[in-house]
Design a protein around this nucleic acid. Structure first.
Lengths: 137, 137
DNA sequence: CCGATATTGAGAATTCATTATCATCTTGAA
DNA sequence: TTCAAGATGATAATGAATTCTCAATATCGG
């Protein structure tokens, strides 16, 4: 935490939500989860602090194609993401196919990549009806 | 072209732009390119027709992480995309690493994937100063 | 415990891509 | 050539995420 920054219930609640979820969260998902530790917390506070945490390097942005911005804690090793088409939750996927530089056209320099997998998460596969539709539960 | 649809200079210009570019284009890029064949064409016409073309299956959406929607002609074989960080243009990437199902956590079912490569395109590598900054040229 | 000041909550405001409106212009069948 | 219906262009309107405003509140060094 940078100097001049105070330790508030709200800030802890946001970090706790991200730590507990173990997956990238939408601002609205953080809002709901953070209510547990900080009842009444507002969406503006979520956005405000996510911005601060990113500047501090504690949180990082997770952008998936056509999706709204999600956030996750920094420090994890290189990984990618899985988006469940049923519940719309995003999960981390550990591995990486690697050797992607060779795919680019001749003369192109590759310095990074993003991979997104789509399908159904374990929860939604076992509970086709219920499960999904509740990104916040 | 569906029944009841007319052949206009604007529609041809949009398809011509996509065909000539050989890469996914932003609506604004299409707007500029289509001006050549259809001077005075408006942005509303671009959006209106892209929507129509998508319903017809002639054009498809290309979504990259954190980027605005781009469009490309349908019919190409499975491929991915490369985003040049210098000129922000997006290019097609022919190959695919494959074998991505295994990366997902146990119990997850993978039914699709998206891969985006980042770096510098050939043009921007050879002309560090000039090149980029001109997504429309 | 005090007080200076960082932080918050609620809601207004902003941003920006995309869509709707509507008068005017084109297309294409007759 | 004619003309009904589809298209277009300019611009207003939307929709949705994110940011700003500001009075009230909470934090923490002294």
């Amino acid at each position: 935490m940078l100097p001049n920054e105070r330790s508030t219930r709200q800030r802890h609640a946001i970090l706790a939500a991200l730590r507990a979820a173990q997956r990238p969260l939408l601002p609205t998902e953080i809002l709901e989860l953070a209510q547990h530790d900080a009842p009444g917390i507002g969406i503006a506070t979520i956005y405000r602090n996510l911005k601060t945490f990113m500047e501090e390097g504690a949180v990082q942005l997770v952008q998936l194609p056509g999706e709204n911005a999600r956030y996750e804690l920094c420090g994890k090793p290189h990984h990618h993401h899985f988006l469940c088409r049923a519940c719309t939750r995003v999960f981390d996927v550990a591995g990486c196919p690697g050797a992607l530089e060779g795919l680019a056209p001749n003369g192109f320099a590759v310095d990074g990549h993003e991979l997104t997998l789509y399908g159904q998460c374990a929860d939604c596969r076992s509970a086709p009806e219920a499960a999904g539709n509740t990104p916040s539960s």
